[in-house]
């Protein structure tokens, strides 16, 4: 492992868009960092905020949610509701000094394999710069 910090990242990716974009990036042999652990969800709107806390408390250095572009959600408005939830989550992180910059929300459609790969690179570098998260270090949570 050495001294170099390798961010541990969790991605909640919508089945209909970002997950397919991840597959596309893979089959097109686009390179992106292996740091991200993808979790396929049926819609960005189906990610309960509890699972985001869980990811952070279990040691994720960053969490990214990927959904369909506004207007394109298969369940009509799941992504808009997700956006509000993420906003509330981010606000709480900020109020409690929990480093809200470690949470990202991005819209990546099924055809955007390249955008997927680039976003993952960007996110990994962003978290690498922030360094390890303290949230998952405390064993008495």
């Amino acid at each position: 492992m050495g001294d170099k910090f390798e961010p541990k990242l969790v991605g909640f990716f919508c089945n209909w868009c970002t997950s397919s974009a991840a597959d596309l990036a893979g089959t097109s042999r686009m390179q992106y960092p292996p740091n991200i652990r993808p979790i396929r969800v049926m819609c960005s709107g189906s990610v309960d905020t509890a699972y985001i806390w869980r990811a952070f408390l279990e040691g994720a250095d960053g969490v990214i949610i990927g959904g369909c572009h506004p207007g394109d959600c298969h369940y009509v408005s799941g992504n808009y509701k997700a956006r509000r939830r993420i906003k509330i989550f981010e606000t709480i992180m900020k109020t409690l000094g929990l480093d809200e910059k470690r949470l990202w929300l991005r819209w990546i459609s099924a055809s955007e394999g390249k955008k997927f790969a680039e976003t993952m690179k960007e996110f990994t570098e962003h978290i690498r710069k922030l360094g390890p998260s303290k949230i998952g270090k405390n064993w008495s949570v």
């Binding site: 808009y80 509701k81 956006r83 509000r84 939830r85 509330i88 981010e90 929300l105 991005r106």
Partner: peptide, 13 residues
Amino acid sequence: LVTFKEDELKELG
């Protein structure tokens, strides 16, 4: 949490 506006929170994504 039960509602939304299409045109809001653009900075998030």
